[in-house]
Simulated assay, not measured.
Amino acid sequence: MELNIGVLSGKGGTGKTTVSTNLSVVMNANYIDGDVEEPNGFIFLRPNLVHSEEVMVDYPFVDKDKCTLCGECAKVCQYHALFRTKTEIMLFEKLCHGCHACGIVCKYGAISYKKRAIGVIEEGKYDSIVCKRGVLNVGEPMAVPVIKQLLGNLPDGINLVDCAPGTSCNVVNTLQYVDAALLVTEPSAFGLHDLKMALKLVRSLNLPYGVIINKYSKGNDMIQEFCQQEKINVIGVIPYGKDAAEAYSSGKMLIELSEYRKIFEEIAQKIKEVFLWS
């Protein structure tokens, strides 16, 4: 069965990577770390790396012998990656989106393209689970090309895609590749506020979704009450506990604790009922 499930949160720190990595093991689903600016799922899964490839992007190269300094290339660039001076066309390569508009408008054939690396895709195995992640190079401002290359060739079966936090363009681009979404939140005012933002996003994309409440403490039911009012399916509730915090801080999986393994198994079963069988 082919199914890609995005795991996202309106804010950072809610535990979406914790949920993604533990669920991938329980469900025997492939783990895809799409948080390319801060990928940390491999810390917990520790896959044996078997393959890596660079992510390359185009950037324009101006032949000064052919360039007339007409400036049309700079005018057409929406991202201000090119700038005409009195003596040359300057390139700010990290602003370039590789759209090739500059080459199209150049009447003198002065613009060609070269490639540069902005990140890497790494792939490994955790038992029978395929683990992939994108890693954006330090100092690079644009993560989307890495995300597209990472998600453009997903393995067969069920894939859990660990999205970037928030609702930025990185998350929007990631959700183009998934069939359903799990929204991980925490029972706090900030958690509720940003959950509403994430809900607005997945609804605008017409994605089926469910909510997982992490770090739950007894009596703090604000998320459950909100979901009940909005008729939102709560897939599972993961309680806050000292043992879980100690395991997480040591880079261990929560499913190593019997109480939490049972919780994640119940969540996995609910996911099958909501996303796979219906």
Rank of each mutant, 00 (worst) to 15 (best):
C70L: 10
C70H: 09
C70Y: 11
E72I: 12
E72N: 11
C73I: 13
K75G: 02
V76N: 06
V76P: 02
C77Q: 07
C77M: 07
Q78M: 13
A81T: 02
R84V: 11
T87D: 15
I89F: 04
L91K: 10
L91R: 06
C96G: 11
H97Y: 15
H100M: 14
A101G: 06
C102T: 11
C102Y: 02
G103A: 09
G103P: 00
I104Q: 09
V105F: 11
K107E: 14
G109K: 11
G109R: 09
A110C: 08
I111N: 03
K115M: 11
K115T: 12
A117H: 03
A117S: 15
G119K: 02
E122S: 15
E123D: 06
K125D: 06
K125G: 00
C131W: 00
C131A: 13
K132H: 08
R133G: 03
R133I: 05
R133P: 00
P141Y: 09
P141D: 13
M142Q: 12
A143Q: 03
V144S: 06
P145H: 09
V146A: 11
I147Y: 07
K148S: 10
Q149I: 07
L150P: 00
L150N: 00
N153P: 00
P155K: 01
G157R: 09
N159K: 04
D162H: 08
C163N: 14
A164I: 00
G166P: 01
T167W: 02
N170D: 09
V171H: 00
N173R: 08
T174F: 00
L175V: 02
Y177K: 04
Y177W: 09
V178H: 05
D179A: 02
